[in-house]
Design a binder for these strands. Structure first.
Lengths: 338, 338
DNA sequence: ATATTTTACGGAAACGCTTCCGAAAAAAGA
DNA sequence: TCTTTTTTCGGAAGCGTTTCCGTAAAATAT
């Protein structure tokens, strides 16, 4: 591929390259007519400013790195699409890496992105319990970073969060007001704040309605369907069947629901279900699963906006936190009387 | 962020920048000891070659663009991960764009990627029936492109394909040998070759077993769960229930299965199901869905390899086509006697 | 009319790197 | 020992831009 350069345009019009440059970056003094002439013949010749040269002189890569734990499930892709929309519009390129839920590969990804001189990073941590020194060093250097979804409270940085506590409380409250009193919470990974927050919401909903909770009401579960299945099988084996299950996210709820159904339990009559972070499956399975829907697209949009704000105003930078709201999508899995 | 440059390293060691450059690109004559010294002090100083400058001199962006119709469902993300793995390893960056199944936004994406001087493209078309002139022009210019999954047969270009015909034939054959004779095919979008190929496999399996097919055995369906639901509802309403359904992809099969289940049909006794392009849900729903699994990860790997091959040997370029194999994951939805 | 300001553009350096050319130093050959 | 070859490095040009500085020409003021 042979590209047309600024010199070619200059030669053609018998102008200096600086004039051509001025025509494309309208902040300098240039006569209106010549500018129009330049732009016209430039497009005729098929000239596009070489992004590499531009980046070199401007000492900016116009690249933004996004690091997520995975992007097989729908959640992160949706966030990424949201971020890309506004980043692309502003002329930024987006480099996406996935850490595969591994701290090591996450740090490695971040380092390569920084070495490749991205202008900023949007990150959802694979684990919040690990060492965050590297991130802190970057932040202290003034490197623009926005965290979302999975963050570390110690890091003094901009964050886009979801009000996990509030919506877990709402979701639990929904179950309680539906008449379910003996509710078990399937907890998420302990290393994540969002798990703790959802648990806290679950607990406070019970406090509000003055319902006692024992340790039997909490079962540690993962993020997978399999873990939900295993939990349900154990419950059935021990014959400890609660009225309802509130899961820290959809997959374990779905897994547990599948097992209970297979064992002849009626849903939601015998046992009700509420999930979290609305997955594609929620509305599709039978019965459809009540779940808290997060504003995935908006999370991406807000993260991108915040990052650009930080990049463009490097001096007046103050770490901000935006907390977004969601929706409780109430479906058959948790509604006692239809 | 202030970066250490090659000049800083040169000054520190009282060497010429060219020597430092040689140390980092070991194709030139340089003494082993000085090279080691340079590399050592360079890492000490925290020097990383500026990718923008490198790209400018080498007239290569080391960027690869990937264009997919969507990446909410698992298929394309898995392909992308496969491609990224080998691209990253070779020092390439990956720019991912999604066309949202729209021809216009696909072309727009491709054009911005080309303007940003990506060294090559990996593309899955949003629609194969639209104008492909732009792609042909690029290919004629020698621009490296590899198509996968959704391709246009007219384009003389490298392709990574799946043997849709063969595996559709296998899948249908499986149903026939299980004893299902009256099988309906839910066809995919007509504009895609893969739909035609799967249909052809379905037909030829019937020919092989000398089973008659009428137009009643073909129902046009989309790629969604909803379309499958609608089709099933129509079948039930018209009381035209086949022995089995072979769908062009999983979602319509799942949708149809849900409706039949809700209406009291036993699966696979009353009606059996086979899907295509193994989705996450296939193994999770009840009963688990038999489906053809595509080697998503390998598709990405092979596409990336082929593209790099094309980039690195621009002259000896010959369009290749790799056809990959899959697996028929036989599950309960299609097994008559367990 | 001339003096002064403004406008519009050219020239050139710089961004950080690669790579060609040439030459000193070292090694090998005579 | 002197010549020839090889090794190792320095100097400089060039990649395609941006941007600073300077200056004719045009516009305005005197």
């Amino acid at each position: 591929m042979d590209y047309v350069t600024i010199k070619d345009v200059a030669k053609r019009l018998n102008l200096a390259v600086s004039t051509i440059s001025r025509a494309f970056n309208d902040k300098y003094d240039i006569k209106k007519e010549t500018k129009e002439l330049i732009l016209k013949t430039a497009t005729e010749m098929g000239y596009h400013p070489n992004p590499m040269a531009k980046k070199l002189t401007q000492k900016r890569s116009f690249n933004i790195g996004i690091v997520v734990p995975e992007f097989i499930n729908g959640f992160f892709p949706e966030v990424i699409i949201g971020a890309q929309e506004i980043l692309f519009e502003k002329g930024y390129q987006v480099l996406i890496t996935q850490s595969n839920e591994s701290y090591e590969s996450e740090i490695k990804n971040v380092k390569t992105l920084v070495d490749n001189m991205v202008d900023g990073l949007i990150i959802s941590l694979s684990s919040e319990s690990k060492n965050t020194d590297y991130y802190q060093t970057l932040i202290d250097k003034g490197f623009p970073i926005v965290f979302f979804n999975r963050v570390n409270s110690k890091l003094k940085s901009s964050k886009i969060l979801f009000n996990d506590y509030k919506w877990a409380l709402f979701a639990t409250e929904h179950l309680i007001t539906q008449g379910y009193k003996n509710i078990v919470h399937l907890e998420g990974l302990e290393s994540l704040t969002l798990s703790k927050e959802r648990k806290r919401g679950f607990i406070d909903a019970h406090k509000k309605y003055k319902i006692e909770l024992t340790s039997n009401h909490f079962i540690k579960s993962g993020f997978t369907i399999e873990s939900g299945k295993a939990t349900a099988e154990l419950m059935i084996k021990n014959n400890q069947i609660p009225n309802a299950i509130f899961a820290s996210c959809d997959p374990p709820a779905i897994g547990a629901m599948m097992v209970f159904k297979e064992n002849g339990y009626k849903i939601p009559t015998d046992i009700a279900f509420v999930g979290f972070t609305e997955s594609k499956l929620a509305g599709l399975i039978n019965p459809p699963l009540t779940s808290v829907m997060q504003p995935t697209h908006d999370i991406g949009v807000e993260a991108a906006k915040m990052l650009l704000d930080q990049i463009e105003n490097p001096h007046a930078y103050l770490p901000q936190t935006i907390i977004l709201n969601g929706t409780l999508n109430i479906r058959e899995s948790s509604v006692k009387i239809i």
